[in-house]
Every structure is written in structure tokens, then in C-alpha cells.
Nucleic acid binder design. Structure first.
Lengths: 247, 247
DNA sequence: ACCTGAACACCGTTCAAGT
DNA sequence: ACCTGAACACCGTTCAAGT
């Protein structure tokens, strides 16, 4: 089992990812993957104990498409890079992404991404004891948002006020009525994602400062530095810049 | 189709949820659900167009177990209540929860929960235009964290440094090496969830203040009011209380 | 109005066998 | 070392029929 040719194993995983990309995750059957390689289903069991193990490998293969951040990038740009990569991978393989939340992050590529996040947070000056949970929060947000977007949790069905009202008596949804005009507005997902993530990173910066570790000197490229607070969370929602209450 | 007895429909959904709770989501087949009711699989197709539609109803049924927050609760307690309810539902039906991220939130119970969140954010004083995305961020975190915990993304496989090192050459994981002592420490998930969520709510409060809408007077029960910042994010990680850099 | 029976085109996986 | 064939116990869903 362990010494079957690795190249064959890779071929199988590639085939599975292709099937997923082309026909959805439901189409990824041992039989379909084997057929794509001109094999019998049973051939795969020489390389994977069962289908779950194959799917774990598919997740790893997908995450392996995340490119390493360029060396010399600051901690903030590193995280933004990784977040953008996750997003682009999610769009490339939308039906595979939900598996990320379903299986533990055990593949080498997943662990390497986590290591890069750890490293970035340490460079940000976050206290080491706090780094692991900070990483969990950030990656929960990044993955959660990616899945929600491609998986349809944010899609029309959930946004359209009219279809909601059609299902429930309006009186049961008072807040929806108050927000009606804002619920049907088109959403710029890229901007929202970017702004929310920026907000997170401002918090990271604030925590790092609080930890009294010298944050790596690193100007924020997109706006003047020195305002490590939650302001970014509101950026793309149309409010003008107002005095900042937390500083 | 539309006028088949609603009670029968509910029986079917209940049966499906029971099968899921007892034998996992994979065991929820049209055949198994039907058998539990003494029916033929084909009987279900009178009530649901297909299996996906049944699963959507199962999600709705699960969310219907979320209890309404008591009237008179403040916005903050309302959100904390809902978050705690999602968490407890997730533990009750761990294998069903991942479906939350897979299907749009279209069931009446999902919409009602969202309406309660909208209402809480409005009462917090958040500008209406900003409420929908604030809701998306909060519920992404709440659901994402719930799934990660029950679904195993945070489980041993992903936390144990030793097993990671066994897979990859240590030199490839420099940050893991630096953090080794903190990675094997036991995690109090409840405390982490609570603290992170508190951090979010501090941000909400800060944004509301910035929006210049009068926040509903509402003392924070768990600590002195008036510090709407990111501090809570670090609460349970062992750092003593230090001067707050953002205020 | 509600349900069944038979059939079709699929699954994952085991076991034994082939080269 | 690598793969196949046959078989088992399952799937979701369609169609026609029953009461």
C-alpha cells in the first residue's frame, strides 16, 4: 500500500479533482474516477483505503494550488495574499470547498498554509500564546466566507426580500421590513470580503500593540497607518469618514 | 402536491432528522426515512420533489429548535443567546450542521433567526445600510465556528504538533516549531467562542457609536461598559488586563 | 388523495483471482 | 506489484398502477 507508485496516486487525485470541477462533487465516485483513467474501480483501493481518504487527498490537492506569498512581503500582505488565494481556489472548485469545513486540516498543504499564517501573526507582534486562536478565527472567517459565497448561503434565495415575504407573514419579520431597501441592493462581494478582512487585520494590529511586542515596522499601503481599530469593517458600506470613537 | 397533509410532511422531516442524529447524515436515504415510517420510498415523493428538498426541510427543522430570545433582552444578550442556541443545536445534530453552509438560508426558521439578528443590530444602533453585512459577518463566524468544532476541522489531527511534524519535515514548518508549546495546550472551546464573539460585539458597539445613532442604553453585564474595542478577543488567553491601546 | 411495485441506472466495498 | 471480475448490499428516481 505505502509503496505503490506515487505518480499513480497523484494521477488518481488529479482525476478526482477534475471530475469534481467538471461535474460537481456528487459525481466524484470511485467508479467515475477510475473510468477517467481507464481503470477498474477496484484499482483505486490499492492507493486509498476508501472514498473518504481519496476526498481528503482531493482537498490537499486543491489547497496545493495556493501559491506561497513572495518572500519579503509584510505580515499584513501575507495574510491578504493567502486570503485572496483561498478565494480564487474556492471559485475554481466551488463544489469541493465545503469539504474544507467537513474534514480536519491534515493534508501537508493545509498545514503549510497554517504555518504561513502563524508566521505572519508572529511577525505582526501577536503574543505567541494568542497566535493559534487568532489563526483559528481568521481562517474560520476566510473559509466560512468563501464557502458561503460559492455555496449559495448568501445567494439570491437568502437575500431577496420579496421571496422571504412570500414565505412568511410580513409581521413576523419586522426587521426585514425596516431594512427592505437595503436588502435588495446589489452586493460587491469582493469589496465586502476585503473590508471585513481588513477589519480583522486592524484588530490583529491592535492586539499586537497591546501585547507590547514591537510590531514589525510596516506601513499600510492602502491608507495612512496608525489607526488599528475596527473602522475598516464599515468601509464599503457607504458611510463617509467620520471621527473615530475608539481612538 | 401542495395540499398533502402537512402533518405527514412534518412526520417525514422528523424521521429524517432522527436518522441523521442517530446514524449520521450519510444514513439519511429516502429508503431509510421511509422505512422508519413504515412507508415505501416512493411515498416521500408526494411531499418532496427530491432528496435535496427533503434535506432543506431538515435544516429548517433543526433551526426551528432555536428558541426565541426572551423579550426585553438587550441587543447584546439577544445575539449571545442566538449564538449559544446555534452552538447547542450544532452539538445536538453534528452531522447536519455542515449543510448550513451548503444550502441557502431559505427556510422560515432560518429567516426568522436572521430577522432577530437584524433587529438586534438595529437596536445596537448600527446604521441600517450596514446591518446586512454585519449580519453576514457575525453569522459566518457563528456557523463557521460551530461547524469547525463539531466537524473536526479543529480536532486533534489539526492541532497536534507531533502528528504534523511526522508528516512534514520540521524545517518546512518554522512557525509550528516556534509555537510548539502552545499548540499542544488544551483548548477551552466554550471560552474561546465566547471571547471571540464578545470581541465581535465590541466592534458592533464601536461601529454603532461611530454611526452616531444613539445606542440603546444597555450596560454590559459581564464587565464595566464603555470600552467598545477589540480587547475581548484576547480575553481567555491568559494575558492580564493591560492598558488599552485603542482608547 | 395517498400510496405501492417493479424497474433503471447507479453507488462503495469485499473477496478471490489473475499476471 | 498492480490490476481485474463477479458479487453484495445498497442508492435516487421514473413510470405505471392500485385503492
Amino acid at each position: 500500500m505505502r509503496k505503490l507508485k506515487d505518480s499513480r496516486r497523484a494521477e488518481i487525485v488529479d482525476a478526482a479533482l477534475l471530475v469534481a470541477a467538471e461535474q460537481g462533487i456528487k459525481a466524484v465516485s470511485m467508479r467515475a474516477v477510475a473510468a477517467r483513467l481507464g481503470l477498474t474501480p477496484m484499482a483505486l483501493y490499492g492507493y486509498f483505503r476508501n472514498k473518504d481518504e481519496l476526498l481528503d487527498a482531493v482537498i490537499g490537492r486543491m489547497l496545493a494550488e495556493i501559491s506561497r506569498p513572495a518572500t519579503g512581503l509584510g505580515w499584513r500582505e501575507t495574510i491578504l495574499h493567502l486570503a485572496a488565494e483561498v478565494r480564487s481556489v474556492a471559485r475554481r472548485y466551488p463544489t469541493v470547498v465545503p469539504l474544507l469545513f467537513t474534514r480536519p486540516a491534515v493534508s501537508p498543504s493545509a498545514i503549510m498554509v497554517i504555518d504561513l499564517l502563524f508566521d505572519a501573526l508572529l511577525r505582526a507582534g501577536v503574543e505567541p500564546a494568542r497566535v493559534p486562536r487568532m489563526e483559528r478565527m481568521i481562517s474560520t472567517f476566510i473559509i466560512g466566507y468563501a464557502i458561503s459565497e460559492v455555496g449559495g448561503r448568501f445567494s439570491e434565495g437568502s437575500l431577496d426580500t420579496r421571496s422571504r415575504r412570500a414565505q412568511l407573514h410580513p409581521d413576523l419579520l419586522p426587521a426585514h421590513q425596516l431594512l427592505a431597501e437595503h436588502l435588495d441592493a446589489p452586493v460587491d462581494w469582493d469589496a465586502e470580503y476585503q473590508a471585513d478582512l481588513d477589519g480583522f487585520l486592524d484588530i490583529v494590529a491592535a492586539l499586537a500593540a497591546r501585547d507590547r511586542r514591537e510590531p514589525i515596522a510596516e506601513p499600510r499601503p492602502s491608507r495612512p497607518p496608525g489607526r488599528p481599530d475596527a473602522e475598516r469593517l464599515s468601509r464599503s458600506s457607504g458611510a463617509g469618514s467620520r471621527p473615530d470613537p475608539v481612538r
